[in-house]
């Protein structure tokens, strides 16, 4: 069982934070197939958030095929995310390190690097949608 937390300053909507925390736990192997997610009532009573927020998050996870709701019992993990992509992290991190070194060599400071990464990331994400 995992526990959720909420960062109201993050600017990420509460429902998305719940989704991201489940995905993160799946990726890190903290949640495995068959594990139960906290019930809506438990999450709500702990975090003082709207039940519809939790339901929406669980529905989205269900839609992605990561969890399944068993009526009257609870919501259970059906698939894990700690898969082959974990193996790709190493080489990708190396590439990123090389790129970072290049950026510093070109005279970019931390802020510029972050700004460049985020704008490129967002543009690429938008192009994928369009």
């Amino acid at each position: 069982m995992i526990e959720f937390h909420l960062d109201v300053r993050s600017g990420v909507s509460p429902y998305l934070q719940v989704v991201q925390q489940v995905r993160q736990a799946l990726r890190l192997g903290l949640l495995r197939e068959g594990d139960q997610l906290p019930t809506v009532k438990d999450v709500v009573a702990r975090l003082a958030i709207n039940p519809n927020t939790v339901l929406k998050a669980y529905r989205e996870l269900e839609h992605d095929g990561l969890v399944a709701a068993r009526p009257g019992v609870g919501t259970f993990v059906t698939r894990t995310l700690a898969d082959a992509s974990l193996a790709a992290h190493g080489p990708l991190r190396q590439d990123l390190r090389r790129w970072l070194a290049k950026a510093r060599l070109a005279g970019l400071d931390d802020e510029s690097i972050e700004a460049l990464f985020m704008t490129t990331f967002r543009t690429a994400a938008q192009e994928n949608i369009a």
């Binding site: 109201v8 509460p14 809506v40 009532k41 709500v44 009573a45 702990r46 003082a48 039940p51």
Partner: peptide, 27 residues
């Protein structure tokens, strides 16, 4: 927390006024 638990348990509807937007954002 109690209010949200009641919403989850009994499906009651709530209308609340507040100046505390951070609270509203949660609930």
């Amino acid at each position: 927390q109690d209010l949200m638990e009641a919403v989850a348990e009994h499906g009651l509807s709530v209308v609340l006024s507040s100046h505390l937007v951070a609270d509203l954002e949660r609930v």
